[in-house]
Nucleic acid binder design. Structure first.
Length: 307
RNA sequence: GGGUAGGUGGCCGAGUGGCUAAAGGCGGCAGACUGUAAAUCUGUUCUCAUUUGAGUACGAUGGUUCGAAUCCAUCCCUGCCCA
């Protein structure tokens, strides 16, 4: 079974309680908790919070490394199998929708890495010749895909070109291939939600707590230890703190910015998960006991156990 | 008290007589999303009717004009300078 959630706080303890109850182990589905040395700002559960429940896919990648959905899919799947072998129930927890989809939709990614040089080349070309040029080229290759991509969406335009360059296939073809496998696991998806104003209040409070816990110190350490940090620096809370440390904004501005970005992120997650029609929504303000009761009932009724 | 700059939609800010329900930005809301995803991108944003439409709106009141956010008068408020 899988469990996803798009709220910044509350899913952690709920998932751990659930794991204790049903003899499960947790596979994180969070693109930032993956990284080492980023704990406060990503709200990675501490040893104490884990209450002895084993967690996978947490603190396992160097912040300077590039990590992708495909990496996630492979490793998370391995974790799930490992848990199943122990006759335990895997509980996938986290708010990274793209990562969750890779698992529940059983998406297969071809075994090709990212050609960093080619990507840089395309970026340079976009700079010099204009993004429109690249868009047109991509359109020649894969008009179907490009119909859905904005002319300003640099990342996706470049990706279409990249896929073609590396695989000789169009994005559209590639996506069809990626879904050729049958879904391997039975699963349920549960999501925590609550009234918007309450959600936002909680997020704001959560950010204040992070600051109190020493987010700024953590970021200082992080950049000292990893001067070439890349992907990890996209993380909300980290990029703003870096700007603050570089005197580009005041501490108050930084805190406000982190809160705002976090709220928006939560909203984007809601959008993402609302689309999944198998989603079973839980009230985030309910007690854990009640939510766990609902989860157990759902699982029993449909008699779907393992994954 | 004198001088001066200004008061525009949730906020910032453009706009000096009709093409203005008013550029742009921010914020909000909604959406997209298959190898950077806590990323990236899109739409929408006065009210009501929702096809054309109607109403209300640029500090307040009054005036000029066929027509005003834009011109005039008075008043209120804010910043700066001089007393």
């Amino acid at each position: 079974m899988l469990y996803a959630d798009q709220q910044l706080h509350g899913k952690t303890s709920l998932s751990i309680s659930l794991a204790q109850k049903i003899d499960g182990e947790i596979v994180s589905c969070d693109s930032m908790q993956i990284y080492k040395d980023m704990n406060i700002g990503t709200a990675t559960p501490t040893q104490e919070e884990m209450r002895g429940i084993k967690h996978y896919m947490i603190n396992c990648v160097d912040p300077e490394e590039r990590f992708s959905v495909s990496d996630y899919k492979r490793q998370a799947e391995k974790s799930i199998e490992e848990i199943l072998k122990k006759d335990k129930i895997p509980i996938v927890v986290g708010g990274t929708g793209l990562y969750l989809n890779s698992l529940v939709d059983e998406i297969e990614y071809p075994e090709i890495g990212i050609d960093e040089d080619y990507r840089i080349k395309l970026n340079n070309r976009a700079e010099k010749e204009g993004l429109g040029k690249l868009y047109d080229e991509a359109y020649q290759i894969d008009p179907e895909a490009m119909e859905k991509i904005s002319q300003n969406d640099k990342k996706r335009i470049i990706r279409v070109l990249e896929i073609y360059y590396q695989t000789g296939k169009t994005k559209t073809q590639q996506e069809i291939l990626s879904r050729k496998n049958e879904v391997r696991f039975d699963y349920y998806i549960f999501g925590l939600n609550m009234e918007r104003t309450v959600l936002y209040e909680r997020i704001n409070k959560r950010v204040d707590i992070m600051i109190e816990q020493g987010l700024i110190e953590e970021v200082k350490e992080l950049v000292k230890k990893h001067p070439k940090i890349k992907t990890a620096m996209q993380s909300i809370g980290y990029k703003e703190t870096v700007e603050y440390l570089e005197n580009k904004m005041t501490k108050e501005e930084m805190i406000e910015k982190i809160k705002q970005e976090s709220r928006r992120y939560a909203k984007r997650q809601l959008t993402w998960f609302r689309k999944r029609n198998e989603m079973i929504w839980l009230n985030g303000l309910e007690s854990h006991e009640e939510n766990i009761r609902i989860i157990l009932e759902t699982i029993k009724k449909e008699k779907c156990k393992e994954v």
